[in-house]
Amino acid sequence: MSTDKSEELQGTLDLMILKTLHALGPQHGFGIARRIEQVSEDVLSLNEGTVYTSLLRLQQRGWIRSSWGVSENNRRARFYSIHQARAEATGR
């Protein structure tokens, strides 16, 4: 039962990340977390590290790509963006 719930949550999180990247363009993990926090309060409450698990999985499945850049506080950060070819192929 608990796995069902967490899987559902993960699916929701995946979708929210894709929506965020689609709406705002390339973002780093922190930015994605902030956006999701705005949109829905309970998905990430107190556990926003899980976006990284979702990001890694989406990347492995070829939905998103990442590249290194610099964050607002001048630190090295990984920026994620939607993989266009793949998104168009599935009709988005």
Binding site: H28, G29, F30, A33, G49, Y52, S71, E72, N73, R75, R76, A77, R78
Partner: peptide, 9 residues
Amino acid sequence: DELRTHLQL
């Protein structure tokens, strides 16, 4: 690195 950046932010 990613984690550290995130925590810092």
